[in-house]
Design a protein around this nucleic acid. Sequence first.
DNA 1: GTTCTATGAATGAACG
DNA 2: CGTTCATTCATAGAAC
Lengths: 215, 215
Amino acid sequence: MEWENQEMQHHHQQGEDYLQYQIQNEVCGKVMTDEQVEELRKQIVAYSAISEQLAELHKSMSAHHDFTGIRLGNLYCDPISASVGHKITARQRWTPTALQLQILENIYKQGTGTPSKQKIKEIASELEQHGPISETNVYNWFQNRRARSKRKLQSSTDSVNAETDVSTKEKKTKPVDPDFITNISQGVESFYFQADISRGYDSYNNLAEQFGLLG
Amino acid sequence: MEWENQEMQHHHQQGEDYLQYQIQNEVCGKVMTDEQVEELRKQIVAYSAISEQLAELHKSMSAHHDFTGIRLGNLYCDPISASVGHKITARQRWTPTALQLQILENIYKQGTGTPSKQKIKEIASELEQHGPISETNVYNWFQNRRARSKRKLQSSTDSVNAETDVSTKEKKTKPVDPDFITNISQGVESFYFQADISRGYDSYNNLAEQFGLLG
DNA sequence: GTTCTATGAATGAACG
DNA sequence: CGTTCATTCATAGAAC
């Protein structure tokens, strides 16, 4: 369909009220509904539980195997997804796994600029333990990471940033840093929002310790 | 926290969708700082990474097993589904107003193919007078506009390489979990999830699926 | 309220 | 490196 027409109408319909909504939303800052809070809570707990249980499973099943070789040729195929036979969209482009991302972020963070070829090789090797990856991927990742962090066309926290008028100038500068998901260990350590979650936190630490994620 | 308030009011509107929107927005008072968002993100990603890793281990070590029945302990957690259904991501996406759209279209048509950063700034400023918008929004808009108009041409010449995607239909909303999780509620006070944690999300979901948590 | 579609946004890769 | 392209994901609003 030709959105040109349709869209016009569509948006017009919303009119000022909608605009008002947007503005208000912007003004009141970051908020989330209780429903969202709920979801969040669930997610964290779920992770916690899953990690814990998986760790147990792992323990009970002595590690005799080497699992690093899970990959289908050079075609990326998320092992987990694949195993489920689900969402296997034979991706054409590399997608870092959470772990890989974490590692990359860590390196990036301490990193003093673009890794040398040598370093990239090392990193790539390291990351291969956690999934299919090539040196090029690593290289690109760093390039992109840097470029985007630099370009920070704002968007950090509020994608709907905008002030209707005057207040614009000062708000333009976004107070937040573009880096996210950096150094997990540090992050988790310093992040502690409450006792109830501590269980999850603790198990995280244990897990991390066990697998040397923090070291 | 003032959680209660919100919770209460959460259930009475049912008017137009928009009205609902407004109320919700108005009602939601939970705010979290950027740092909190950051930390939260980290934590979730950390869990995600750990889970992923563990799952991999487990999977490779038990290739000959049948995990259909694997239950993560006696923990009945179905929170995943909930998350899947509603998306925690509170990210609100920008929606151009009719005026903004028109202006954008004009600029686009004027052919100056690529707006360039500088221009984007100008455009953004211009459009701010007609509604909330950020440079990123403008940037994305042009990116998408170009990409899509291009793709359109492409598809028209070629037969419909239909990829009537099969995916996604499992995103069904699921009946949610037990109280177990609710206990934690007190803990999580205010969050806002604006950032994209879909990555962590995905692996999380995959994990859940793999272990049959989704039912 | 469920499904579908248009489209904002994220991001790996490529280009100059 | 900075910028742009291509592909994919997620979601708001429309359609049913």
